[in-house]
Simulated scan of single mutants.
Amino acid sequence: MDTNAVLDIAAVALGLAAKLAAPALITALVVGFTVSLLQSVTQIQEVTLSFVPKAIAVALALVIAGNWMISELVVTTHELFARIPQLLES
């Protein structure tokens, strides 16, 4: 296995990790910003008011995007398994 193959696998892994984390992170960002804006407008500074909606929204995003996330992971795993003979011969 040469250096280019290792770097290619690492790039695929990092891209997949970013793709799989995006739905939860973007949802948490949007909900957190919205709740913070609401808190600053109403001057309510309650900690649970920012945590509970964010946790519910992230859980909902994972339920909605979970099937897509698993299918992306399975496709990438199959592609990596298909590369094994090519990696062993070099």
Rank of each mutant, 00 (worst) to 15 (best):
A13M: 13
T77P: 01
L88V: 00
L62P: 09
E89G: 03
L87D: 00
V35D: 06
Q39G: 04
S71I: 11
I9C: 09
A10M: 08
V31W: 00
L29H: 08
L38R: 10
A24W: 12
E89Q: 03
A21C: 11
Q86N: 10
A5F: 13
A11V: 13
W68L: 03
A18F: 14
V47C: 01
L16T: 06
L62F: 06
G66I: 07
I84Q: 04
S90P: 06
W68T: 03
E79L: 10
F51E: 05
I56M: 07
A57S: 14
I44Q: 07
P53F: 11
N67W: 09
K19Y: 11
I56Q: 05
D8H: 10
E46L: 12
L20P: 00
A22Q: 12
E46A: 07
L73P: 01
E79I: 03
L60D: 01
V75N: 06
A18Q: 12
N4G: 15
V52F: 15
T3V: 15
N4Q: 04
A22K: 07
A55S: 15
T48D: 02
A24V: 05
L38P: 03
E72Y: 00
D2A: 04
V12C: 02
V75P: 05
K19C: 00
I26A: 12
P23L: 09
A22N: 08
Q39P: 05
A13N: 11
L87E: 01
L38K: 03
W68D: 07
A10Q: 06
T27P: 11
A5L: 10
L62G: 12
K19V: 10
A13S: 10
V30T: 12
V30D: 10
L73F: 02
S50T: 04
A28E: 05
T48W: 00
A11I: 12
V31A: 11
A5K: 07
G32P: 05
V12H: 13
A11C: 05
V12K: 15
M69G: 00
W68I: 01
E46I: 10
F51V: 14
A13E: 13
V74M: 09
I64A: 08
E79R: 08
A65V: 09
G15T: 14
L20I: 15
L49Q: 04
T42I: 05
M1F: 14
V74F: 10
I64Y: 12
A17K: 08
L87Q: 01
T34V: 15
T42M: 06
A11Q: 15
N4M: 13
S50Y: 10
L62D: 07
L49T: 00
V41C: 11
T76S: 13
T77C: 02
L49P: 03
E72I: 08
V75T: 14
A11K: 14
S50D: 02
E89F: 11
Q86S: 12
G15R: 12
A24Y: 08
A11W: 13
V74P: 03
I44C: 04
S36I: 11
L73H: 02
V58N: 03
P53W: 06
T3W: 09
S40F: 13
V63C: 02
A65Q: 10
V41I: 15
S50H: 10
I70Y: 02
A82K: 13
T76G: 09
T34G: 14
V63A: 03
L38N: 05
A10V: 15
L60P: 09
I44A: 06
E79V: 08
M1N: 04
M69W: 09
I9T: 13
I70K: 04
L14H: 11
V12R: 15
